[in-house]
């Protein structure tokens, strides 16, 4: 599981339907690099194209590979 401050590359989006489309529309698609900024009360804040907040259920759909710290 990703920790706050870690960078990762998205491997797979496991959500179908409108949620999957919305994730892709927010520039969260396979191959994209993201930074997990903060976790607060089960809600995640991710930086990709902009800042995106999501709950555990949505975050669980995004499979990532941690990148080494730059």
């Amino acid at each position: 599981m990703l920790r706050a401050g870690e960078r990762a590359r998205i491997l797979q989006i496991g959500a179908e339907g409108a949620l999957g489309v919305r994730l892709r529309a927010l520039a969260l698609f396979p191959g994209r690099e993201i930074l997990l900024l903060a976790v607060r009360g089960g809600t995640f804040l991710v930086q990709a194209d902009g800042l995106v907040a999501m709950d555990r259920e949505v975050a669980a759909c995004i499979k990532v590979q941690t990148l080494p710290a730059s």
Binding site: L51, V52, A53, M54, D55, V58
Partner: peptide
Amino acid sequence: KASPFLLELAP
């Protein structure tokens, strides 16, 4: 059941 929460933050 709460809907999934996915929100883009305005700058």
